[in-house]
């Protein structure tokens, strides 16, 4: 009896084998995800760089040129890969959408955390969840049938363009920014607020001078997350932006974004050609921007902690 136990605790058992199997399985799963992330970066980067290494396009033209016609060689014998119109378009819709969404998100978040009762909060919570759930093509369709005519009638132009794109993106990123702002506001310690109110400050003064101030890092993170989503959104924007690879001169003229050119172009070019490679360079920019947004968020979170 005595020896049996002694032997047991020195030897492997069913549990040791289960544990080993479990570890192997979970390691494989997490490894697979890592491989996916690494390969996405590797493949897109390799394809994206080819425009400059293989096809000898110049980086300067890519970022500052305005003539996007990658299949054709320019007068200097290098392909015409001026991506500035798309880059400007992407940043244009993203920034404009963020500018419109921010006050709405902060207002809604303040309403949810400071003013509304339980019922109002629940209603808005559901509203936000539903807005997140609406697929981007449906936003695009609404954009085509509602926003574009609206812009045409009230602002002029064809209706297609950065303004229409921004309106759509505003609604699309609103739920993300709002719910993250709610989290940021909730994270502010309760006694900040009670101290301010006890000193005789009005509710608005408390919100403005104490609450919002304390929540700034969180709100910034929320906005950047929203911008990341807007920057990467493809179909909804593509449907309303007009798809003209010209440098936008106004918010009302047809323009294009990195994503819109990509979705339109990949199917119409042949793998391995300069025209195709140039599109992958656009994808690479998208990838890098997504990384930059991520790093920015981390940086703000870190700063906010200090």
């Amino acid at each position: 009896m005595m020896d049996k136990i002694k032997e047991k605790i020195q030897n492997n058992s069913r549990e040791t084998r289960q544990e080993l199997r479990g570890r192997i399985l979970t390691y494989c799963a997490i490894g697979l995800i890592l491989i996916v992330v690494i390969s996405i970066f590797l493949f897109v980067a390799l394809k994206g760089i080819a425009t400059f290494t293989q096809d000898k396009a110049s980086l300067k033209t890519f970022f500052t040129g305005t003539n996007w016609n990658p299949g054709i060689l320019g007068s200097d014998g290098k392909p015409l890969v001026g991506a500035l119109p798309m880059i400007a378009g992407s940043f244009g819709v993203t920034i404009l959408a963020a500018i419109i969404a921010t006050p709405f998100a902060i207002g809604t978040a303040l309403y949810m955390t400071e003013i509304a009762g339980k019922k109002g909060r629940n209603v808005l919570q559901s509203v936000i969840e539903l807005l997140v759930g609406i697929p981007s093509v449906v936003y695009g369709f609404i954009g085509l049938t509602v926003v574009v005519p609206f812009v045409r009638d009230h602002f002029g132009g064809s209706g297609y363009g950065i303004l229409a794109g921004s309106f759509i993106l505003f609604v699309m990123i609103l739920p993300t920014v709002t719910s993250m702002t709610v989290d940021a506001l909730k994270a502010v310690p309760k006694h900040y607020k009670s101290a301010s109110l006890a000193l005789g400050a009005t509710q608005w003064q408390t919100i403005y001078k104490v609450l919002l101030k304390a929540a700034i890092p969180g709100i910034l993170t929320a906005i950047i997350f929203g911008m990341a989503r807007a920057f990467g959104e493809a179909l909804a924007v593509q449907m309303v932006i007009g798809n003209a690879s010209l440098l936008p001169t106004s918010l009302l003229t047809p323009a294009s974004t990195l994503t819109s050119v990509l979705t339109m172009g990949i199917g119409n070019t042949v793998m391995g050609t300069t025209a195709n490679n140039a599109l992958w360079s656009l994808a690479l920019i998208l990838l890098l921007m997504s990384l930059i947004f991520n790093i920015l968020v981390r940086w703000i979170v870190k700063k906010g902690r200090m």
Partner: peptide, 19 residues
């Protein structure tokens, strides 16, 4: 425990916990 040091890596902790 039972003449063994059970605080080592080699020991089968699951069996230890059963006892």
């Amino acid at each position: 425990y039972r003449g063994l040091d059970i605080n080592t890596k080699k020991i089968n902790v699951y069996e230890v916990r059963k006892h």
